[in-house]
Design a protein around this nucleic acid. Structure first.
Length: 424
RNA sequence: AGAGAAGUGGCAGAGUGGUCGAAUGCACUGGUCUUGAAAACCAGCGUACCGCGAGGUACCGGGGGUUCGAAUCCCUCCUUCUCUGCCA
């Protein structure tokens, strides 16, 4: 969430940022936040004074009792009643104010970085790279949902039978290809200096709050009502929450972690003709890279992560483009995001396969994730993450782009992982 | 899952109603000494909020309660350990 002290100090910048995102009443919103924070401070100050008085009286009672001056002690006790009532009121007021403030902050998104293009929808995203030529497989090119049936490598009907729509069953070479991709992605990440982490895929409410999935987007996550826990929508949640309430030493930076997990998304209301096959699922696999970085270096780190993802797509020999998301299309917690899309020649369309973001201190503020500098001073860190990569759409693109008359040719780099170089 | 025990500062560990934000030891930081190091000695050493500052307030697993006053008593939840049961 936004850091109130920064909002106060650079209010114009924050107003402009939120307006850029399409929040027209941003000034009003931030004024309210600042007012609530002021109220919080003054109420706290009043309460502190009262408690200070009360503490003094209590101590004097203690001393009087020790000296055996019972009656005098009783007299002081009388005086505390009033203070007690007042402090109870103030405590309640303070708590209400804090909750109201927190609530406002939870509902206020991160501000876009200055170089984020203006715009309202995905149509306004800025293409910063695109391969020169797109594969053209002609009119006979098949979408992957036909190919997987033809070669019997993924079965949607079986998934529907045992679970429901959006939970595919991978079989034979399909399962093997998926596992190969996971291993390839993990190996590449480790080569790039990331430590592999296997986190739980079920998280508690505090973790959802920490990375910003809660309180507003609970509709996206599967909720386990009996234990009040959530299935993760991305490994970002556990991987970043590992560092909730942590103070790192400056020397430990950057933290570079990679995790492979299944991801679960309800995707309520997003079904339609364009989400056939592997394009959108309730459960899918993803390898996620997460970095925790010094505020001065997070943009270099962002570039480095973008390069890493780009390298994966190059090695897989997939046609891709990179988009810099416009302010209106930016995720709630992000300050800047690059999307990677691969061109899938069967559907003749671009598929989003990665999203690399710098959250700056927005998540860190919620997480209370800080570092100690040389003078032992604490500062918020920056968090970043990116998919490297999401499996199903990569799979779709590999299948569609590699299709030949009598089989599917796989990217050469996968041969060592799959043990085969074609599916037929 | 059942029975019992326990959760205190980076770690170990005292403290069972009053000047306790908390003894002591270790670790850590600075200093003295030393050619250097070790040892010894001296000093410092949690987090957050408010305040220009002096200072104040809160925090002893989380939440709630009793009391003028709670690390200490009560309730509740969580976690860990031991025993029993179950299980990949």
């Amino acid at each position: 969430m936004l850091l109130v002290s920064e909002v106060v100090e650079h209010k114009d910048r924050f107003v402009a940022g939120l307006v850029k995102r399409g929040i027209d009443n941003a000034a009003e919103l931030l004024d309210n936040i600042i007012a609530l924070d002021d109220k919080r401070k003054s109420t706290q100050a009043q309460l502190d004074e009262l408690l200070s008085e009360s503490n003094k009286l209590s101590k004097s009672i203690g001393m009087l009792m020790k000296d055996g001056k019972k009656e005098e002690a009783e007299a002081v006790k009388q005086k505390t009643a009033d203070i007690k009532a007042q402090s109870k009121d103030l405590t309640q007021q303070l708590e209400d104010t804090k909750n109201e403030l927190l609530n406002e902050l939870y509902q206020t998104p991160n501000i876009p970085n200055p170089d984020v293009p203006a715009g309202k929808t995905e149509d306004d995203n800025e293409e910063i790279f695109c391969v020169k030529t797109l594969p053209d497989l002609g009119e006979d090119a098949k979408p992957h949902w036909d190919l997987i049936k033809e070669y019997d490598i993924i079965d949607f009907d079986l998934g529907i039978k045992i679970t429901g729509a959006g939970f595919p069953v991978y079989k034979g070479k399909g399962a093997r290809l998926q596992r190969a991709l996971v291993n390839f992605f993990l190996d590449e990440a480790e080569k790039a200096g990331y430590q592999e982490i296997q986190p739980p895929v079920v998280v508690n409410e505090a973790s959802g709050l920490g990375t910003g999935q809660l309180p507003d987007k609970e509709g996206q996550m599967y909720h386990l009502s009996d234990t009040d826990m959530y299935l993760i929508p991305t490994a970002e949640v556990p991987l970043t929450n590992l560092y909730r309430d942590v103070i790192l030493d400056e020397k430990e930076l950057p933290i570079k972690n990679v995790g492979f997990t299944p991801c679960f998304r309800k995707e309520a209301g997003s079904w339609g003709a364009h989400v056939r096959g592997l394009n959108r699922l309730h459960q899918f696999d993803k390898v996620e890279i997460v970095q925790i970085e010094h505020p001065d270096k997070s943009f270099d780190t962002l570039d480095q992560m973008v390069k890493h993802v780009e390298g994966l797509l190059k090695k897989l020999d997939l046609p891709y483009r990179i988009l810099k998301l416009c302010a209106g299309d930016l995720g709630f917690t992000s300050s800047i995001t690059y999307d990677f899309e691969v061109y899938s020649a069967g559907q003749k369309r671009w598929l989003e396969v990665s999203s690399v973001s710098n959250f700056k201190n927005y998540q860190a503020n919620r997480l209370k994730l800080r570092y100690k500098d040389a003078d032992n001073k604490k500062h918020l860190l920056h968090t970043l993450n990116g998919s490297a990569l999401a499996l199903p759409r990569i799979m779709a693109a590999i299948l569609e782009n590699g299709q030949k008359a009598n089989g599917i040719e796989l990217p050469a780099v996968l041969k060592n992982y799959t043990g085969f170089d074609r599916i037929d």
